[in-house]
Amino acid sequence: MQQTTIQKSVKCSGIGLHSGRKVELVIRPAGEDTGIVFVLKNENGTRFLSPTPESVVGTGLATTLGEGRDSIATVEHLMAALRGMGIDNVQIEVSGGEVPIMDGSAASFVFLLKSAGIRRQSRPRRVFMLAKPFSHRNGDKYINARPYDGFRVDYVIDFDHPMIARQQLRFELTPESFATEVAKARTFGFLRDVEYLQKNGLALGGSLDNAVVLDEYGVVNAEGLRYENEFVRHKILDFIGDMAVSPLPLMGHFEVCCSGHAFNNEFLRILTENGATYLRTVEASAARAAAAAIQEEGEAIGVPAMA
């Protein structure tokens, strides 16, 4: 399985969730082994930032990457789209310090990437495969990861709200399932929190155009929900995006309960810091053979339902 990039440059503009101002981005093809690279342009010149778990400097409202005085906010939906569509190498030029929030989902980015086209490259794709089970827990929150020949998420959320309550969903990541099952799921929040944030100069770009907003009883948005369980679908979207800041694509089966951006990043930092114990670097085309080897060593491992 070879690495991929896009065939041509594509661009879009929209509102920044934090600033409420117009922001723009351009996604350009990149060479093999480049990875995902953000190009930040400001009065200090041009900086290049490659996502890593350690480069996450903020998790309030969204995931923010940074280095020194430079940062880029709200990257998780774009990162999820790149991971979900199987794109390895691109440069992303950002103006305004934020990725535009668009409609609060990853659907616009999927459309952009499909419009650009995907080009296979000559070098093999490398991935991180879970070599043994790993768990991260804090109270009711947990992420349990174990070896798996694929990327599977079993997600549970539990909110004290009549429109959400307890939702759970099992999801197997492929470009097709990402585009149809989670990409369109929008971020959500509560009216009382949105009002508080905006009174304090935060989330100035948040609106009913880019989020599902709930009052005490139900959904405020006139159009309602895109899916009956849009809330848990969006949490899976965020999880994919937060895991996509790993230096290489992760393969594993992840059981996730009541997590968020901060907890996702804690999990990924600890996992990669202990990568010598818990991760193996393999070529994607050899993942099944690597999974078989792990199984022979005594670790339980799953295979995708489509296998």
Rank of each mutant, 00 (worst) to 15 (best):
3 Q>Y: 04
8 K>L: 06
13 S>C: 13
15 I>G: 09
15 I>T: 15
24 E>I: 08
27 I>G: 04
28 R>W: 07
32 E>G: 12
33 D>C: 00
41 K>D: 12
43 E>H: 11
44 N>G: 04
46 T>F: 06
51 P>W: 12
56 V>N: 08
58 G>E: 10
65 L>E: 04
69 R>G: 04
75 V>W: 05
76 E>P: 06
80 A>S: 14
82 L>P: 05
89 N>P: 14
90 V>M: 07
91 Q>S: 10
92 I>Y: 09
93 E>D: 11
97 G>P: 13
100 P>K: 12
101 I>Q: 03
102 M>T: 09
106 A>P: 00
108 S>M: 07
109 F>S: 00
115 S>L: 13
116 A>T: 06
122 S>V: 12
126 R>K: 15
127 V>C: 07
127 V>H: 01
129 M>P: 03
131 A>L: 05
132 K>Y: 01
132 K>S: 15
139 G>T: 07
139 G>L: 05
142 Y>R: 07
144 N>T: 11
152 R>E: 11
153 V>K: 09
155 Y>Q: 00
159 F>A: 08
160 D>M: 06
162 P>K: 10
165 A>E: 14
177 S>G: 08
177 S>C: 04
178 F>L: 01
189 G>K: 11
189 G>D: 09
190 F>V: 05
194 V>M: 14
200 N>T: 14
203 A>N: 10
204 L>S: 00
206 G>F: 07
207 S>F: 07
215 D>W: 05
218 G>K: 09
221 N>M: 06
223 E>A: 12
223 E>M: 02
231 F>V: 00
232 V>A: 00
234 H>C: 01
238 D>M: 04
239 F>E: 00
244 A>W: 11
247 P>H: 10
258 C>E: 08
260 G>L: 01
262 A>S: 15
263 F>Q: 00
266 E>N: 01
267 F>M: 01
270 I>P: 03
276 A>D: 15
276 A>L: 13
281 T>F: 05
282 V>I: 13
288 R>F: 14
290 A>P: 03
291 A>R: 11
297 E>I: 07
298 G>Y: 05
302 G>N: 01
304 P>R: 15
305 A>Y: 02
